[in-house]
């Protein structure tokens, strides 16, 4: 199979039913996408497929052929951090940061669709991402900051 990830073509040896998360992590060493639950309810594995946030742990690899996959490794372009990444650093959001990749991609996807989201909108669209360290208020603040830059 051929996959288009972060604007690069990869040919992979996987079964079409293999979950995308494992192909990214184990085969392609794109380990920025994390495993947290394997059932689509924690958001740690979030990637963008054609710009929309999806949970790669419940996405079959075959279904992503011909689509644009963006992982955390492809969010910064030409070495320049995305404004969401910059805001996350500026607010100094994270503790263990294991949730950081998924939070970043969910936030990038949100701002693509809704450039100036209200607090309620942020909460609603980030609801599927768990931060067990409880940095939620900082994440909300950073997304607002990113929206305003």
């Amino acid at each position: 199979m051929e996959l288009l990830i972060n604007k690069k073509k990869y040919s992979v040896n996987a079964h079409p039913d293999d979950q995308l998360l494992y192909v990214l992590r184990d085969e392609l060493d794109l380990t920025g996408s994390k495993y947290g639950c394997g059932e689509g309810v924690c958001g740690a594995c979030t990637v963008l497929i054609d710009g929309t946030a999806v949970r790669s742990c419940i996405t079959s690899t075959g279904s992503t052929v011909g689509k644009h996959i963006t992982t955390i490794e492809g969010v910064a372009e030409d070495g320049k951090l995305h404004r969401v990444q910059q805001a996350f650093l500026h607010v100094d959001v994270f503790q263990c940061a294991y949730c950081a990749s998924g939070m970043t991609l969910s936030a990038v996807s949100l701002l693509e669709k809704s450039p100036k989201p209200s607090e309620q909108e942020i909460i609603r669209s980030m609801q599927g991402n768990i931060c067990r360290c409880g940095t939620y208020p900082r994440i909300v603040k950073a997304i607002q900051e990113a929206a305003n830059t």
Binding site: T31, Y35, I72, E73, Q85, D92, Y98, S101
Partner: peptide, 22 residues
Amino acid sequence: SVPKKNGETFVTGKHKYVSDMK
């Protein structure tokens, strides 16, 4: 308030947790 050490490696997915290492 010194910012988190190596903060950038986390928001870019570069930091290798044990589960990421190979």
